[in-house]
Nucleic acid binder design. Structure first.
Length: 884
DNA sequence: GAGTTTGAAACT
DNA sequence: CAGTTTCAAACTC
């Protein structure tokens, strides 16, 4: 395919010429011509070229595929889709022209055509038939998917391909010129790729038009050459941004989102995360380095370096944005953008800041209802972004984007909120981020952001530390031995450089030592990917809050400490306790002794869990009441949730129709959904970039990848899926849930549902379609991530409600009790989720609950899909599974 | 402001 | 994974 585009076109030309000549001149041969042509053409021409292609690519691609697949698989597919669609669009346009167009269309377009199912009119012509068949054969011979992917994906490969194809070289010249013109760089590559794609598209279109007019190959060639030259010029012009316009013009489909979004996303780095496009962009950009530094980037917001990169990458971003558009066009799911945005909503860098900076929000605020919460979140995000930017500026690395970015971010956030209010809601965005870091520290630049700081400052206000800046409420570290390169240092933990207010000694957390800082951060992240994530995540309490009753009952702080505290003497009544410091209640995850946390005792949570689990067990047998109870619960608790549903949860709700959501919530029980979800989000933000590069952060990537896809799928699913599935859920899970809801006091109930929402269980199930994808994704993550992935999974598991763990994994004993357990949860929970997701997907929306129980056994079948899928194959497998 | 306490982070 | 040490904030005086 890849090589084919040009070679195929050439072949086609030759073929067309021959057949045409034959047809015209040799009437008798015409009858045979189809076969003869086909055979002759195939034998002489194709073998050579095909061999060419196959050799070049196969040799390269096949082995490389293994390597490549993990990274690019998604991208490739997306690219392929893009190409196909874009080309298809072109083709459709060109189709008007007639046969010649088809014959002339480059291999990609041809393949696309074949895939698209050429209209019967075209097939009528023997020549076309031959051509088509040839094309098909070519495509087959060339192993279209891989070759195409490479052609589309890897600029290097493309170069090779072009080198192989003389015709292509011409176009390459333009590319090369572009390359030379723009210094080689990741972004440049992306541009090149864009140019290539554009050129190819234009070339196809132009060719088609020209062919229509001329109808002969030679003319076409000439025109093609001319076109190429034109393209070269165009490409130069386009490099900078015109590309987008061209794409938009070319693409018949309305762009779901303007380029702005892409830029916005850029700012956040989040753009990349969700969609294949992002991956494509990344891969195409060839900015592996950027990917590697994705983690850095998010920090970059805080550390000036990132800002610089982002600035430098703006052009790339534009290109990527254009690409983004491309993807959108190609991709049937327009929703990707919103999701992306949602993904972007989480500023990669923000997480840290949120933790450190955003603490300000009082718990009560955190408990705001969905809309409020979303607004707050968005605001926080914005603030965080600003802060990050500011901080970066403070550090000395001016982030040019700050102003524009902030605006963009706002827009994006708004868009996101629209698309994914639920995200913000469902997302564990740390409303009370009171991360440990945050508690103590505020962003260095308080002046502008004093508001937030002031808010967060209940803790900070209290701070009496010598170092603290009362005026700014900015607190600085006082490290003496850690050199401010360990998490001991609040500044470092918050992802900010130490500044003057700090009284640290031997501080290396400064711009001058940027490299050291980044390296250290990497090391720490390698040890604990979540190290820089907010320690305290807000529960999704938003949902219950809507209910007046629940609101009253809800714990003061919906948020909980992700890991939980380990207090032994402070009784969680002093700031020694991270939970207390964060103004959040202790949870079951806490290992504190004699907890008297004013924001919520650990004991309060535990009983709930146990009660839930007990109830489950008891009621598993009784399916009857379960529906009634579910309905009751759903009507009370869940209904409102539907509106708020996060991207993930919504899908779940849709699939489950609220019943499941209620169940899931109930099931989630004690867990802090938000913290985990937040973590997930944070992670996802990081990972987005990394995903293409397994090396950078395999775990996070995989995880994020899941999240991204999930969210998109969820969103799409949510949109598509009917909220109500009349199907009765499985008795067991439902019964448990229902009972819990019925039996559990509303206070508990409210808590449980909230937590559940945040909890991952629902997420995984979310859409009927998504489940498998998720599963595959999850598997992918597991396989790829390995040790690191384990951490992530552990986190996820932690998120997963204990109930689920217990129920789902009789085989998998939960280690929740162990103090360590908090931190490390068994990966099993994921499998459960997966199973659920699978079952739900296969079974249908309603089955979600029942999946929980039964799904577990069903996993094995599901997993095979995921397992069989290589990392590379995950996407495909996902698609297959989902399709299945 | 010095010293103590505390618990997270880091290390083994 | 558990235990120990290191570290810096929180706290007390």
């Amino acid at each position: 395919m890849d090589c084919s585009p040009e070679p195929c076109s050439i072949k086609k030309k030759d073929e067309d010429e021959e057949p045409s000549s034959i047809n015209t001149s040799l009437s008798p041969q015409l009858q045979e011509s189809p076969f003869l042509k086909f055979i002759s053409n195939l034998s002489p021409i194709q073998p050579v070229k095909s061999c060419h292609i196959t050799q070049g690519f196969v040799g390269l691609s096949s082995p490389p595929i293994v390597f490549m697949s993990p990274r690019i698989s998604c991208h490739r597919e997306t690219k392929f889709l893009e190409r196909t669609q874009s080309s298809s669009t072109e083709i459709s346009q060109s189709d008007n022209g007639g046969k010649s167009l088809v014959s002339e269309l480059p291999g990609d377009s041809i393949n696309l055509r074949s895939q698209l199912s050429l209209p019967g009119s075209f097939t009528t012509d023997t020549t076309q038939m031959d051509v088509d068949t040839k094309n098909d054969t070519n495509t087959q011979n060339c192993s279209p998917s891989p070759s195409v992917d490479e052609y589309l994906a890897d600029p290097v490969d493309i170069d090779r391909i072009y080198s192989a194809n003389p015709d292509v070289k011409q176009s390459d010249d333009a590319i090369e010129t572009l390359k030379h013109g723009s210094e080689d760089g990741p972004g440049d590559r992306a541009e090149q790729t864009l140019l290539l794609s554009q050129e190819s598209n234009k070339f196809h279109q132009e060719k088609a038009a020209c062919v229509e007019g001329s109808g002969k190959l030679e003319e076409e060639k000439l025109s093609a050459d001319v076109l190429e030259t034109q393209h070269r010029h165009d490409s130069h012009a386009q490099c900078e941004g015109s590309e987008l316009q061209e794409y938009s013009d070319q693409t018949p489909e309305p762009m779901p989102e303007p380029v702005k979004d892409a830029k916005e996303c850029e700012d956040c780095d989040e753009m990349v995360s969700t969609s294949h496009v992002s991956t494509e962009n990344i891969s195409q950009c060839g900015s592996e380095a950027t990917l590697k530094h994705h983690g850095v980037r998010r920090r970059c917001l805080q550390f000036g370096e990132v800002a610089l990169r982002s600035n430098n990458s703006n052009t790339n971003l534009n290109a990527s944005s254009s690409k983004m558009k491309m993807v959108n066009l190609s991709e049937p799911v327009t929703s990707l953008f919103p999701q992306r945005c949602s993904g972007t909503a989480k500023p990669s860098g923000i997480g840290l800041h949120l933790n450190s900076i955003i603490n300000a929000i009082p718990p009560g605020c955190a408990a705001t209802t969905g809309l409020k919460s979303t607004l707050l979140i968005s605001l926080h995000k914005m603030d965080n972004m600003k802060r990050c930017l500011i901080s970066s500026n403070m550090d000395g690395q001016a982030s040019v984007d700050t102003g524009s970015e902030s605006h963009e971010i706002v827009a994006s956030t708004a868009a996101d909120s629209l698309n994914s209010e639920s995200l913000s809601l469902a997302e564990p965005i740390p409303v009370n981020p009171a991360s440990v870091h945050g508690k103590r520290k505020l962003s260095p630049t308080n002046a502008g952001n004093s508001e937030e700081f002031n808010r967060s400052s209940p803790i900070k206000k209290k701070k009496k530390t010598s170092i603290t800046n009362d005026e700014n409420s900015c607190k600085r570290c006082n490290c003496k031995k850690s050199k401010c390169l360990k998490l001991y240092c609040d500044c470092f933990a918050a992802g900010i450089y130490c500044s003057d207010p700090c009284s640290c000694q031997g501080c290396l957390n400064r711009q001058e030592y940027q490299e050291t800082v980044l390296e250290t951060r990497r090391q720490i992240e390698s040890r604990n990917p979540l190290a820089f994530l907010p320690k305290v995540v807000q529960h999704t309490t938003d949902i219950p809050l809507t209910n007046m009753e629940d609101a009253n009952l809800t714990t003061p702080s919906s948020a909980r400490h992700k890991r939980g505290c380990n207090c032994k003497r402070s009784m969680c009544l002093k700031k020694y306790c991270e939970c207390y410091q964060a103004n959040v209640g202790c949870s079951s995850g806490c290992r504190c002794e004699g907890c008297k946390n004013a924001f919520g005792r650990k004991e309060d949570y535990v009983p709930i869990e146990h009660a839930l689990s007990k109830e489950r067990v008891v009621e598993q047998g009784s399916d009857k009441t379960f529906y009634d109870k579910l309905e009751m619960v759903v009507s009370k608790t869940e209904l409102y949730d539907l509106h708020r549903l996060s991207p993930i949860t919504p899908s779940l709700q849709c699939s489950d129709q609220g019943k499941e959501a209620a169940k899931s919530r109930l099931l989630s029980g004690k867990y802090l959904p938000s913290p985990e979800s937040a973590n997930v989000n944070m992670i996802s933000s990081h990972k987005k970039y990394t995903k293409p590069l397994p090396d950078s952060h395999p775990e996070t990537d995989s995880y994020e990848w899941q999240m991204d896809q999930l969210s998109p799928t969820c969103n799409s699913a949510a949109d598509v899926l009917t909220p109500v599935s009349s199907n009765p859920p499985e008795p067991i899970s439902f019964s448990a849930i229902t009972k819990e809801s019925a039996d559990i006091p509303q206070s508990r109930f409210s808590h449980a549902p909230i937590r559940h929402l945040s909890g991952g269980s629902l997420r995984w199930r979310s859409s009927p379609n998504t489940p498998r994808t998720r599963i595959s994704e999850t598997k992918y993550v597991e396989q790829s991530l390995e040790s690191d992935s384990r951490r992530l999974f552990d986190i996820l598991e932690d998120e997963t409600p204990d109930i689920l763990k217990e129920v789902s994994t009789p085989t998998n004993p939960v280690k929740a009790n162990s103090p360590n357990q908090k931190r490390v949860s068994p990966p099993h929970g994921h499998s459960h989720l997966r199973g659920l997701g699978l079952s739900s997907s296969s079974g249908g929306l309603r089955s979600g609950r029942k999946f929980i129980l039964k799904a577990v056994p069903s996993f094995p079948p599901l997993t095979p899909c995921a397992d069989s899928k290589g990392n590379d194959d995950d996407h495909e497998n996902l698609g297959n599974c989902s399709s299945k």
